[in-house]
Nucleic acid binder design. Sequence first.
DNA 1: CGTCGGATTGAAGATACTCAACATGAGTGG
DNA 2: CCACTCATGTTGAGTATCTTCAATCCGACG
Lengths: 253, 253
Amino acid sequence: MGNLLTKKLEQFVRFSPAERQRLDQLAEKRRKTYAPGELIFKEGKKAEFVLLVVSGLAARCKILSEGRRQIMAFLIPGDLCDVEGFVLNAMDHDIVAVTETVCAQLAVADVEELLTEMSALTRALWWSTMTESAVLRERIIDQGSRDARERICHLLYEMLVRYRVVGLANSHSFPFPITQEQLADATGMTPVHVNRTLSELKTEGLIRWKDKTVSILDVPRLKEIAQFDGCYLHLERTFQGDAEVAERAGDLL
Amino acid sequence: MGNLLTKKLEQFVRFSPAERQRLDQLAEKRRKTYAPGELIFKEGKKAEFVLLVVSGLAARCKILSEGRRQIMAFLIPGDLCDVEGFVLNAMDHDIVAVTETVCAQLAVADVEELLTEMSALTRALWWSTMTESAVLRERIIDQGSRDARERICHLLYEMLVRYRVVGLANSHSFPFPITQEQLADATGMTPVHVNRTLSELKTEGLIRWKDKTVSILDVPRLKEIAQFDGCYLHLERTFQGDAEVAERAGDLL
DNA sequence: CGTCGGATTGAAGATACTCAACATGAGTGG
DNA sequence: CCACTCATGTTGAGTATCTTCAATCCGACG
C-alpha cells in the first residue's frame, strides 16, 4: 500500500501507476521525529523542504500577545505541513508537534521538479490561493482571540492594505460599501454590537465612515489596536524590480 | 497597464513579457455585471469558468440555519472568485455581490490549458491546499456563528471524518491526544469553559474521551448538534473506481 | 510520597446578545 | 411635493454565555 498522503490525494485525483509510484516514493525519504511541544516550523522561516506527517499530531498556531495562542488547524497523518512555506517566501505561522510526531521529508529535488513543471502563471495562482488561506487564518484569529474592538480594527486595517495593493485606496481611506449588518456577519458579532463598537471608534476619532468610505484618522493607532502584523499578506517582494507596489502598501506593513 | 489581477500577482512572481501579456489578455473577455445581493456562485455548483472581480465588492458566505449568515471573506477588484469551484468539483459556499459588481470571465480554454499543463500530482496538491482552505472556512463559521457546544461537536465530528479517510479511525472513535487547554486554543474558548462543555456532552452520553481517544457514542446526534455538512471536505469522488474510500468515510457525510 | 500537569468545580464579573423601540434617510407613489 | 415605506442605523434595558480568578482534585511519574 502507498503512504497516507497518496491515500488522501486519491480521494480526488486518479493517478496513473507511474504517478502513483512517484508519489509513494516521494515520502520514502528521511524521517524526523519531533517531541511534544517541539517546533516543526517557525513563523518567518522559509521552508527548505516539504514535510509530510506520518504519525502523531501537529498544529498550525500563532502566538499572540499576552500568552494567548490560537490553533488554526490540526495536522494528522497524511497531511502536508508546509506547502505554503515552500511556495511562499516564509511561513506566517508556527507548526508545533502536539504529541510525538514523525514527519517524512520529501526530497527537495522532487518537489522542485514539481514546481518547475508549473508555468509562472500557475505558480502565481497558487501564491494567490495560499495568500487567501493566510487571510482566512487571520480571520480565525480575529474571531477566536480578539475582542470586538480589535476584530473590527484588524479587518479595517487589512482592507486598507488590500485596497492599497490594487491601487484603490489612498494613504488612509478606502471604499467599503457594506452595511453594519454585513460587517456583523463578517466579524461574527451582532449588528447592535457592531454599531456600538463602531461609534466608540468614531467618537475616539480613530475612524470616519461616511458615504460608503472608511477613513482612518489615526493609522498607526489603528494598527496598534488591531495588533496588525502584515506578513501574512506576503507582500514582500522576493525579487528586485520596480518598487511600485512596495510604495503602495509597504509602509503599512 | 495590465489588469488588477496581474498587478496583484506581480507582488510575488515576475512574469516574462509573454506571460504578462497572456495574463493580461486572460481577462479581456466577456464581462458580467451583478446586482447587489445577486448570487455570483452558488454552493454545490461546479464552476464552469473562472471569474475575476473587476469592480465592486463581493463576499464569500455561507447561509446557516435560522437565517444566520457568515461572511468568510471579502473579494475586491483583482481577486479571483472561484478557483476552488473550478479545481474542485463544487463550490462549498456562496459568492454574492455586495454592491454592483463587475466580473470578467476568464476564457475557459485558457484556464483549461493551465490545468492540463499541470501534472496529476500538482493538481492533487492543489486539491489538497484548497480543501485545507475549506476547513479553515469552517473554523471561521465555528467561531463566528456557533456556540460552545456546536463548536466542539463540529470539530470532533470533522476530526472523526478526517481520521476515517486516512484509515485511522473506526466507525465511531479516533485518537485525539490533546489537552483541554489545546482544545480551548483551537476553538477560541477558555479551558474552563471547554471543560464544562465537554462534561455536559459526556453526561449526556454523547461522547466519551478516555486514554487520549474520543469515542462518539451517538454519531447521528453529534452530527445534528454540529449541524455538520461534509461537502466542504470534498470527499465525493468524481470518477468511478474502488469505492474503498467512500466506504471509509462516505456514511458520515 | 511528593510533585506537577491537567482536569474539575465554584463564584463573581464582563463582554456581547436579545428584544424592542425609535431615528434617519433614500426612494416611491399618490 | 408630501406622505409612506423600507432598509439601515441608533439607543436602552435586561440577560446569557463565556470569562476570570482561584481553589481543589486527580493520576502519572520520579
